[in-house]
Simulated assay, not measured.
Amino acid sequence: MEGGAIAQFIPLILIFAIMYFLLIRPQQKKMKQHQSMVEALRRGDQVVTQGGMIGKVAKVKEDGEVEVEIAEGVKVRVVKSTIAQVLNKTEPAS
């Protein structure tokens, strides 16, 4: 009787393990990569926002925002976490 009860839980444990390795773990890895990309934003980086705007970072602010220049003289404030991709990185200052 004892062995039968454990045998019933083995498929549930296997399903959870498969879900962890196929869904949860890759999502956590992707979130860490996005977080490190956002942390590394610097002035001059060309970025794409989640809204599809492409611009150049004019200023990185402390309160979780960046100022992005989308056209000459046109700057918008964007929340850092909404930066979807960095197209061109600026070279680090030597």
Results as ranks from 00 to 15, higher is better:
K80F: 03
L23V: 14
L22Q: 09
L87N: 08
G52I: 12
V86H: 03
I15R: 11
T82F: 08
E62I: 08
E67H: 04
Q85A: 06
M31Q: 15
A84S: 11
P26A: 04
E39D: 13
T49C: 12
I70F: 04
G73N: 11
N88R: 11
P26K: 03
V76L: 14
S94D: 09
D45I: 09
Q27C: 09
S36K: 11
K56L: 08
Y20N: 06
M37H: 03
E72A: 05
R42F: 00
R77V: 05
Q33T: 09
A58L: 01
M19G: 06
Q46D: 00
S81I: 14
K32G: 12
Q46C: 00
E67C: 09
M1C: 11
A93W: 10
R77P: 00
A93Y: 01
K32C: 00
S36G: 01
M53V: 08
G55D: 01
D63A: 11
G52H: 14
P11M: 15
G4Y: 14
L87S: 01
G3Y: 14
Q33D: 09
Q85D: 15
R42K: 15
R43L: 10
K75C: 02
F21I: 14
D45E: 04
E65S: 09
A17P: 02
A84C: 00
D45A: 07
L22A: 05
L22K: 04
E72G: 07
P26S: 07
V68T: 10
K61Q: 06
P92W: 03
K75Y: 11
I13A: 12
A5L: 13
L41I: 04
D63L: 14
S94V: 07
Q28E: 07
E72K: 11
R42A: 14
G4F: 13
K80M: 07
K56D: 04
Q27G: 06
Q28H: 08
R25V: 13
Q35C: 05
I13M: 09
A58G: 09
V66D: 04
Q46E: 08
V76T: 02
I6H: 13
G44V: 08
I6M: 12
I54P: 02
M53S: 03
Q46Y: 03
I54T: 06
I13C: 09
K89D: 00
G52L: 00
I24R: 04
Q50E: 15
A84R: 12
A71S: 13
I18H: 13
V74Y: 10
F21K: 06
Y20I: 14
L12D: 06
Q8N: 03
G64A: 07
M31N: 14
L22N: 02
V38R: 04
I13V: 15
D63I: 07
A58E: 05
F21R: 10
A7R: 11
E91Q: 13
I83E: 01
M37I: 05
D63G: 12
A17S: 12
Q46A: 09
V48H: 03
A5P: 04
M1V: 04
Y20R: 02
G3N: 14
R25C: 03
Q33G: 04
T82Q: 06
K59Q: 15
A93H: 01
K59C: 10
M37Y: 05
M19T: 06
V74G: 02
K56N: 11
E65P: 00
F21D: 02
I13T: 12
R25E: 00
H34C: 02
I83Y: 00
I13G: 12
S81H: 10
A84N: 07
V79E: 05
M19E: 00
E65N: 15
S36M: 15
L41H: 02
G55N: 05
V60G: 06
